[in-house]
Simulated assay, not measured.
Amino acid sequence: MSDKIIQFNEGVIKDELKELVRTSVEETLNGLLDQEAAQLTGAGKYERTEGRKGYRSGSYKRKLGTTSGEVELKVPKLKGVSFETAIIERYRRRESSVE
């Protein structure tokens, strides 16, 4: 009877897991920023409502250093409402845990 030997490359597995966590953090933060913008404007993307307080005017990209790697955030730009996110401090480029 032949025994099958399975070998794992630990470095590749760690890299894949780190990338998976990084993309998950990036998607979560971008989702939170979108949700916060929708809450401030009173409407979602492309949504028309009577109680709308402001309008979206695109977004700009910003990098943020996290413990799982550098993520690229799409920060919404708003018209009629000032957007100061509670998620990330203004001018902050790294998480406090990274420093």
Rank of each mutant, 00 (worst) to 15 (best):
G69I: 01
G42E: 10
Y60L: 08
G51I: 05
V12K: 03
N9W: 06
Q7L: 13
Q39I: 07
I87A: 02
I88P: 02
K77Y: 00
E72G: 08
E89L: 03
T23Y: 04
R22Q: 05
K53G: 01
E84C: 05
S97Q: 15
R48S: 08
R62L: 06
A86V: 03
I88C: 02
I88K: 04
E50C: 07
G42Q: 01
L78V: 07
L33S: 02
V25N: 02
S97G: 11
D3K: 14
E16C: 03
L17F: 01
R90G: 03
K4R: 11
N9I: 10
L64G: 10
N30K: 08
S97D: 14
K53Q: 10
T67N: 08
Y46S: 15
R62S: 07
A38Q: 09
N30T: 07
Y55G: 05
G44Y: 08
Q7R: 14
T66N: 08
I13R: 10
F83A: 05
A38R: 08
E50A: 11
S57L: 06
E19C: 03
E16S: 05
R52N: 08
A86P: 01
L32D: 01
A86L: 03
V25Q: 05
R92V: 00
S82V: 13
E19L: 08
Y55L: 13
G80Y: 15
G44A: 12
I6H: 07
R52F: 03
R52Q: 11
G11I: 13
E27V: 13
